[in-house]
Design a protein around this nucleic acid. Structure first.
Lengths: 165, 165
DNA sequence: CGCACTTTGTTGTCAATGACAACATTCTGC
DNA sequence: GCAGAATGTTGTCATTGACAACAAAGTGCG
């Protein structure tokens, strides 16, 4: 199916308001897909991330940043290497994440006394203040997640996955 | 911490063999992180995808492609729109995925009788043959996953997530 | 019928992310 | 002291998600 390419790109698509109601989900067979844990894991994980990002949009915080902030809060003074290993974030990526958080004055990198190569990571006073707001929003997200999957299932999943990790 | 930039980039980093054994995991406190289902969900999901990709590396099949192949197999003749909606894959991305699978002669797009806009998706004979191999590898992956999380937990997670979806 | 609007598939583009390489600096083990 | 490892930094590339704009075709309504 070849279609012509046009050069002019000017006409805006303005949404009208006499649209038909959206069609229901067509309910296809999943086939072998429903024997794969990874498939369901990923579906739920996508929902979780999207809700998290939406909930924390006002703070402009993404899941990776949030996890780094929490880990610095719980383990002040540690190095980038240790934080990255714990979260599974690669060195290069963490360096850039911290660069951004330092620019926002949420995180301070101090020289480590014991190792001149590494940085000792701390939250600034600003960072702690912002993190309090962020955690409050994150709790709201978690509540919505519990509501989405059902409180009982939420508890069960949490127990299963936490024990495993 | 400013560091000089150099221009010459020639010296290779050759790994030696008198390295110290890798340090053990430093076991940091997770703080609030361990109250978030999304965190554990994501950790496991990353493991799953990496193992899947590694297991199917020889076939050069990634999770998204695999899910599309399975869905076409289970629902031959459906349109791209329906497949994409079911899997949560955006139209544009699915078009490019299918372009690749068509190039590999695994998938055929036929004209739909009822709607000249849409394509009717089918596996080719080649596609079915390859998919058989792919499914066999995918089962091996799933077995490894069950071993990783524990067979009992694997069953429980599967039940919880499948019922929910 | 004509018209407005939607739907489907396509391509272009951008941002976020993961992965990896190369580097300066510093540490460690011998 | 030295080779090699570790740490943090920057550069680059591939994949992915998201969105916009488009042509072609369907839908509903006057």
């Amino acid at each position: 199916m070849k279609r012509r390419r046009s050069v002019a790109r000017a006409a805006k698509t303005k949404p009208g308001k006499n649209a038909a109601p959206p069609k229901c989900a067509p309910k296809l067979a999943l086939g072998q897909l429903d024997r794969h844990l990874g498939y369901f894991l990923r579906r739920l994980q996508i929902w979780v991330f999207q809700d998290f990002i939406e909930t924390l949009r006002s703070m402009k915080v993404r899941p990776a940043q949030y996890s780094v902030l929490l880990l610095i809060e719980a383990n002040p003074g540690r190095s980038q290497a240790v934080i990255g290993q714990t979260l599974g974030i690669e060195r290069a990526r963490l360096a850039r994440l911290l660069h951004e958080m330092e620019r926002r004055k949420w995180v301070a990198r101090r020289a480590s006394g014991s190792d001149a190569r590494s940085h000792s990571l701390h939250l600034t006073a600003d960072g702690e203040k912002e993190l309090a707001k962020i955690k409050s929003l994150a709790e709201r997200h978690e509540a919505r997640l519990a509501d989405h999957v059902g409180p009982k299932r939420h508890r069960q999943l949490m127990d299963l996955l936490r024990d495993f990790g």
